[in-house]
Design a protein around this nucleic acid. Structure first.
Length: 827
RNA sequence: GCGAAAGUGGCGGAACUGGUAGACGCGCAGGUUUCAGGAACCUGUGGGUAAAACCGUGAGGGUUCGAGUCCCUCCUUUCGCACCA
């Protein structure tokens, strides 16, 4: 007769007990052995938790519980990235206030997290939409403004005509608005930026010290920052007062520059147009390129469009006149938005030159001699030695040539060495209501004036109509917009842009340490004690967004003297996404609400219990890998927990508390036990709970078998079962707490020390020695550990399975790996 | 195009520094229990053979006593970046 396993009642009971006991709560002010672990924030705007990101939390909780059992005081807080577009869009559609919508979703998410038995320190809970949180966004903004790190400029941004708002880059999918599917336009708007480019070098250099970060993420950040060394060189244009600066990584090819190309967006283009008799053509071209969406401009890579402005520039090295062109392939946001065209040594310039009949002039020659430009079919970026380049002639292609060129250019005052970055400043303005108001006031007399600290927080107004709203609802709130200038006291307009929600999440890990602190943003003493975050768990999707912004803001806070911390997250673990077949597209896609291929964990919890869902989610595969969700195997997890339940029930009869902890008898089951402790401990350390589960399944079977056969003493069995229960706790916490209690043990199993193994007992006295003949497995020997080679060979020769393979043959050599393998090489 | 990761049974996946390939689970097959059903229990399960031999980790080469693991070439898939001067 098997004991009936009823997860529902057990789980409800323990969830209540953990909450009542505040087991997750820690005093962040008190010293101790600290471990700070953080899951990347969820999106409470998502109305339900789905297994795709539930996996984060289940893995995180298992790690957290293991740390607790390992005796470390561990902080595991949860915060809500509560501002954002979805809440506001819901408000526009339904009229429900974004706050209401958000708070309802937070409550629901919280319920679901609790349902899975996840332990968070709710005393540290925070939500970015709470003024006690976002006032510090504003405070930080003002400090950054003082430092010149926050500024306003006019920039080309993504604009969705349907939603009548700017969009973040990540909200643009294939050139279309993620929500309305409208084609996104590029518009010039005056926006607020954070000067992240000032930190490019430090952000790049810091990556080398993040040894516990996945290489993949670091590479993505490096590419995103995109450092390249080169030079800025000035080209005089006859029609213009100021020279045009170009950025190049190949100043060594300056003598080969045969044209100058400007991005149509280049600021000098308007002036050129005004002075040109080709004004209409220039304006048409600019308009045409600008009308192309970014998508088209990128998709048509290869098709290079251009227009000769009719003006000429002077090649500063040769003094020759070269034409000034407009070209669609020159990007306005990189470098200076202008390039020198060196067709012989740059493929893009080559294609452009050939298309428009511009001259090609090689300035490198090969061993065979100079290159015939007419015979070239492609650019030769790296070849031979400089030629036709005055003093530089003869220098081999490479860093040496670049260095020589930079020195020469600087000496002549033609330009200077420069490091270029692909990284652009962080656009933080959003023309939306549901975000942190940017604390600035526009005064007709004083200009843009910061809100004084004493007036913080700038609260979101309540007199706002959302339903069917067009544009930023804040603009229509008189109470909000109409204000007075803090400098001159005259009537002024309040800034209506709000901040990107990534600002919120850039420093929240610090705020968990002092979430109710009214007087300051961060507590430097607690930060010194707890920082950096020991373990950060989250998906790869934040590799260059959140994880880069957080590293940036951390450095800003350091420079402001608020914390002594350069890197916020010491160790990062990227778990793979859960994918699932999307019936709508027929493809296997990342599980997400917007794709409509989600699976809600609470339905599964209702059927099998949270422990089964947790165990199965961890068992599905290695957490760093993407996994396709399937429920085929859930029953296997459920069966296992049933067997554990049954086993516990069998030995619980007559079990007295505290029995067998001391006895470490040398029996087969004891050895199995120690081996299992070792396996589970090591697997958990590298987050491989799927193999830990496999080890526990084997262990359960071994215990059950010895109970069946009566081969082990009750004390040994009792201790083994207790060990099984402890090792299983991070994975299936409810069932294991329940049995720990029924065994008469107290208090929480969560507070029990993680079992330790004896390395000696974690081995077996006898081992299987594999015998190979000429590298092929021909038999196995059961021998004592540490058997020497000579007797192993003798045993092998005598073995009836092996004998036929060696009989009558000469053993040329033997390879012996003690306790593992014997390979006989015969002729 | 550039960069990174990965290809192992019907499926998810094991295999730490080269040393029994396929742990564990699903599925499947046979059996047990049950009025019955099953998400219960037991046994078996890479191909192949009567049993062996033999063949098997994307393909082809190489190093080695021995290769899923190391090296070279190629193929496929996934994910980044994508005219970055």
């Amino acid at each position: 007769m098997t004991a009936r396993y009823d997860p529902g009642s057990i789980e409800a009971k323990w969830q209540r007990r953990w909450a009542e006991g505040s087991v997750a709560r820690v005093d962040t002010a008190a010293p101790g052995n600290e471990f700070y672990m953080l899951n990347m924030y969820p999106y409470p705007s998502a109305s339900r938790l789905h297994v795709g990101h539930g996996r984060n939390y289940i893995l995180g909780d298992a790690l957290y519980r293991r740390e607790r059992m390992a005796g470390r005081k561990a902080l595991n807080p949860m915060g809500w990235d509560a501002f954002g577009l979805p809440a506001e869009n819901a408000a526009i559609q339904s009229g429900v206030h974004p706050r209401e919508y958000t708070l309802a979703n937070i409550a629901r998410m919280k319920e679901q997290l609790n349902l899975l038995g996840l332990l968070y320190d709710w005393s540290k809970e925070l939500a970015s939409c709470d003024p006690s949180y976002y006032r510090w966004n504003q405070w930080l903004f003002l400090r950054m403004w003082e430092q010149g790190l926050a500024y306003r400029k006019t920039a080309a941004v993504n604009w969705c005509p349907g939603c009548r708002t700017v969009l973040a880059n990540e909200q643009v999918v294939n050139g279309r608005c993620e929500r309305s599917d409208d084609l996104v336009e590029i518009r010039d708007l005056t926006q607020w930026f954070f000067r992240v480019t000032d930190y490019a070098e430090r952000l790049l250099a810091g990556l080398d010290r993040l040894t516990e970060w996945p290489e993949r993420v670091k590479t993505m950040q490096r590419n995103w920052i995109g450092r390249s060394e080169g030079a800025e060189i000035f080209f005089r244009v006859e029609a213009l007062a100021d020279p045009i600066a170009v950025f190049t990584t190949r100043p060594d090819t300056l003598f080969g520059a045969t044209f100058l190309a400007l991005a149509p967006e280049h600021p000098a283009v308007a002036e050129l147009g005004a002075r040109s008799d080709r004004r209409a053509a220039i304006e048409d071209f600019v308009e045409k390129v600008r009308r192309e969406s970014r998508l088209d401009r990128e998709a048509e890579s290869g098709v290079k469009e251009g227009l000769d402005t009719g003006f000429v520039a002077l090649n500063p090295a040769t003094g020759e006149q070269i034409p000034v062109w407009l070209a669609n392939f020159v990007l306005p946001e990189y470098g200076t938005g202008a390039i020198m065209g060196v067709p012989a040594h740059d493929q893009r310039d080559f294609e452009f030159a050939r298309r428009f009949g511009l001259p090609v002039r090689p300035v490198y020659r090969t061993e065979e001699g100079e290159i015939d430009p007419d015979a070239m079919i492609a650019a030769v970026p790296h070849v031979g030695y400089l030629c036709n380049s005055g003093e530089w002639d003869g220098i081999p292609c490479g860093p040496e040539a670049v260095r020589a060129a930079v020195e020469w250019i600087e000496a002549k005052g033609l330009g200077k060495g420069k490091i270029g970055y692909r990284l652009r400043d962080w656009l933080i303005s959003r023309q939306r209501y549901w975000g942190t108001p940017i604390p600035a006031i526009h005064c007709p007399r004083c200009g843009v004036v910061p809100v004084p600290d004493r007036d913080l927080p700038v609260l979101l107004p309540e007199d706002v109509e959302f339903r069917g709203a067009e544009g930023n609802p804040l603009e229509k709130s008189k109470a909000f917009v109409e204000t007075t200038c803090p400098k001159c006291g005259e009537a002024a307009r309040r800034e209506t842009d709000t901040m990107d929600t990534f600002v919120d999440s850039s420093w929240y890990y610090l705020r968990f340490l002092n979430p109710r602190d009214e007087g300051r943003m961060v507590d430097p003493e607690r930060a010194a004690r707890w920082m950096p975050v020991d373990q950060y768990v989250g998906g790869i999707e934040h590799a260059i967004l959140h994880l880069l912004y957080a590293r940036f803001v951390c450095r800003v806070l350091k420079d402001l003297g608020l914390v002594d911390l350069e890197e916020p997250f010491e160790r990062l673990f990227n778990q793979g996404m859960i994918t699932k077949l999307n019936p709508a597209t027929g493809k296997v896609e990342k599980m997400s609400k917007s794709r409509g291929n989600t699976v809600s964990p609470d339905e599964l919890v209702a059927r099998f219990g949270a422990d089964t869902v947790r165990l199965y989610t961890l068992f599905i595969g290695p957490p760093e890998k993407e996994s396709e969700w399937s429920e085929e195997g859930v029953v296997g997890a459920f069966r296992f927990l049933n067997r554990v339940h049954d086993l516990c029930a069998r030995i619980a009869e007559g079990a007295a508390p505290g029995i067998p902890e001391a006895a470490n008898e040398d029996t087969p089951l004891t050895r199995f036990e120690h081996r299992t402790i070792q396996r589970v401990t090591e697997d958990a350390a590298r987050f491989h709970f799927h193999t830990a589960v496999a080890a526990l399944m084997e262990f359960q079977r071994a215990i059950s078998d010895s109970v069946e056969s009566g081969s082990e003493s009750p004390a040994v069995v009792a201790r083994s079962v207790r060990t099984l229960v402890k090792l299983l706790h991070p994975i299936a916490p409810h069932l294991t707490e329940e049995w720990w209690e029924r065994f008469g043990e107290m208090p929480f199993l969560l507070e029990q020390p993680w079992p330790e193994f004896d390395p000696e007992l974690a081995t077996t006295p006898r081992v299987t020695l594999v015998v190979q003949v000429n590298g092929k497995v021909r038999g196995k020997l059961d021998v004592d550990r540490g058997e020497d080679e000579e007797s192993a060979v003798a045993l092998a020769r005598a073995d009836e399975k092996i004998r036929p393979w060696v009989e009558g043959k000469e053993i040329a050599r033997s390879v012996y790996v003690p306790d593992r393998l014997l390979n006989l090489v015969v002729r």
